[in-house]
Design a protein around this nucleic acid. Structure first.
Lengths: 143, 143
DNA sequence: TTTGAAATTGATAAACCGTCTCAAAAAGAA
DNA sequence: TTCTTTTTGAGACGGTTTATCAATTTCAAA
């Protein structure tokens, strides 16, 4: 009995609508995915290698893309890799990044999020996720 | 006499600080880059092929990455390619990105920028640049 | 202006990420 | 069970970006 009844329901509904099948691999990958806020295919590959050493990387890519189509995940290109964000995981945090020492401070700001919504609405968009990074110098590196 | 005195100054200062040299290729690439709002390495490669048929693709990648380090450019990964944004072109533009069709809408929002400054100040940071990307569905893809 | 150490270049090889291919296996309806 | 369809795993593949390295260029010092 999984803890992720709701998400599993969403997935099964999507599978049903598209003549797709519910497989052991898809269940395994869904369980691992829902525990994360965001993950890359490569990370998941290593993470699941213990549970199923024969699970192929291609299957993980296929399945994460399937989750995107089902509305459970959201792909985001970060650096050279693709991050798959867990949509159901809220509390999105943004980053302040020091370009000198690499220090990263996480923050959350409701006012900014509200303004983002406004901008999106004005342009006919519906936001699913966002990414905000502020680059500069931290207090120590400014001197 | 270039039109881009200010940016060239920024580049030369960065070069000086890091024992790097000012070359014909870097000047050529900077000129081409500053005319664009954003460009890929491949696009620039073709664009500059007429002026210098022997200019290598690797040099373009190296130089665009150098511009990022100097604070003149900002890399953005979309799809399989990397877009190099011209920081100076506008104040700074942010992006609304449709995850379905890839459509990109640029926007600027002073209120958001002001709130960003507040967050930074509160954390002792001095912002040099930022990156804000809103991911979702555009009006057409929502249906 | 020449000299010489250090950085840069161009050409191409290599790495990297993600997708495609296809035979074998699994799912699921009848 | 049987049969059709989908999925899987393994590796090949394709496109983008980085690494390699000998030859060239820059630029500071003589």
């Amino acid at each position: 009995m999984s803890k992720h009844q709701k998400e599993m329901g969403v997935l099964k509904e999507h599978l049903g609508k598209h003549q797709l099948k519910y497989t052991r691999q898809r269940e395994l990958i869904l369980d691992a995915f829902l525990k994360q806020e965001h993950i890359t295919a490569e990370e998941m590959y290593h993470q699941l290698a213990r549970k199923d050493p024969h699970l192929g990387l291609a299957t993980i890519y296929r399945t994460l893309n399937l989750f995107c189509e089902a509305g459970l995940a959201q792909a985001r290109h970060f650096g050279t890799q693709t991050q798959y964000d867990n949509i159901s995981h809220k509390g999105h945090h943004d980053h302040l990044i020091c370009t000198d020492c690499g220090k990263i401070v996480e923050f959350e700001n409701c006012d900014i999020e509200r303004l983002q919504e406004e901008v999106a609405t004005r342009n006919g968009f519906t936001i699913k996720t966002h990414r905000l990074e502020l680059y500069g110098l931290c207090a120590r590196c400014r001197h």
